[in-house]
Nucleic acid binder design. Structure first.
Lengths: 230, 230
DNA sequence: ACCTGAACACCGTTCAAGT
DNA sequence: ACCTGAACACCGTTCAAGT
């Protein structure tokens, strides 16, 4: 708790000390500079110019640090995109989904971290709250809106994680066109005699990680929820 | 190990030596016994009674080992569920999705591994091939079936990964009922004044990781693909 | 409250040498 | 071909001690 300093009390928002935020910020810097393995207690300590164990003053464990980094990246998304006129519920959801994907792609190693820790931070709660509202604007009953919220989160975060998994996760990522081209080349081996359908859809599979496919997946999920077959 | 010279050559299938398969098997055993951190070159070596570097005779790196473990778990799924009469395309897909989820839940740490490596193994190709076929049986054009295949994979694997992320990933996992109950308790803090929609749907959010929600998500995605709004 | 110093029990990976 | 022995450059975390 940061009741010790006065600056912390002035701000009514997050109660974290400045040094705590610095640690998280440095951790994100380390990840952006050195890739997935660069997020370590010792690397953060080195960047701060202190001994490794000094980091434990601000963070409980490596795991806790990872979760704070995730929280930080959620904070880089544009939550305002989720609010707006009810009839635009669809654009709001798609717009925010793209904003979330973009934020993670700026910090590729964070994609994995999002899949390995429960989404229980303040940002996650706020995103959930606004997603439920948007889905209700789309005509979903309350409970279905809550279910749909999670299906959307799974689709969006899962998509980005698998997208990043195709790379070495070292920022900056190659352009989407380059990544699709690399996939296309890697799929050349598909033998039409052995896997006729896969071979015939090589070009589609190469573009599985594209923005186009991302939008398509989210839209299909929305379509399936709006006129539910149950 | 037995007949490391001739048995491997007799079989025309995978060209791997018996010892290679043993290494992967031991890695999976280690994971099942010790959780996510137990999958290490040194732990596998210790289980085999050899020096750490001896493992490199059979596996190129820790990363390669992880991917082989994923391949092994894919092999535990029941691919036959994906084949069947065309009119049952829906049951085939849902049935296989459940089989895949069950296989991963038997080896929880593998869920994360599936999100951190490209799905390019032989099992992944075969699953893709049969998923495309099933979606075609559902009436989708070829390209849409290929797109839908990836959306389904993202939803299924992403769902399981986030489900496991709520636990310590140490098998055996608590029962689903227990895990839902734990989530319900953890969501007690939600303040209706601050997050009215989230607080009102606590019970739904607690069951986000349930089989019911899993089925619902997959079904909604299928609904959205079968009558596409594009 | 926050840091240093030192240590413990681990990692993945490489190299040289044996058989 | 497959292993040992030894080493390098790392990890996360804990404890005791300083200020």
């Amino acid at each position: 708790m940061s009741t010790d300093g006065e600056t912390a009390r002035r701000r009514p928002g997050p109660r974290r000390s400045l040094s705590h935020d610095q640690v998280v910020g440095v951790a994100l810097e380390a990840i952006d500079a050195g890739g997935p393995e660069a997020l370590s207690i010792r690397a953060v300590a080195a960047r701060l110019g202190v001994n490794p164990n000094a980091v434990y003053t601000y963070v409980a464990s490596r795991n806790a640090l990872e979760r704070e980094v995730v929280e930080r990246v959620f904070g880089e998304t544009d939550l305002d995109l989720l609010t707006g006129p009810p009839h635009q519920w669809r654009q709001r959801i798609i717009g925010y989904a793209r904003s979330l994907r973009a934020a993670v792609l700026r910090h590729p190693p964070v994609a994995t971290l999002m899949m390995t820790a429960p989404m229980d931070g303040p940002s996650a709660v706020l995103i959930g709250e606004r997603l439920i509202a948007a889905l209700r604007d789309g005509g979903l009953p309350l409970d279905a809106a809550a279910r749909g919220t999670y299906a959307l989160i799974v689709q969006v975060v899962g998509f980005v994680a698998l997208e990043v998994a195709e790379t070495d996760a070292r920022p900056p990522l190659p352009s989407e066109a380059d990544r699709v081209a690399a996939r296309r080349a890697a799929l050349e081996f598909l033998d039409p005699a052995q896997w006729p359908l896969s071979a015939a859809t090589r070009d589609v599979a190469a573009a599985w990680i594209s923005t186009d496919q991302f939008n398509w997946s989210v839209e299909r999920l929305l379509d399936g929820m709006i006129r539910p077959g149950q």
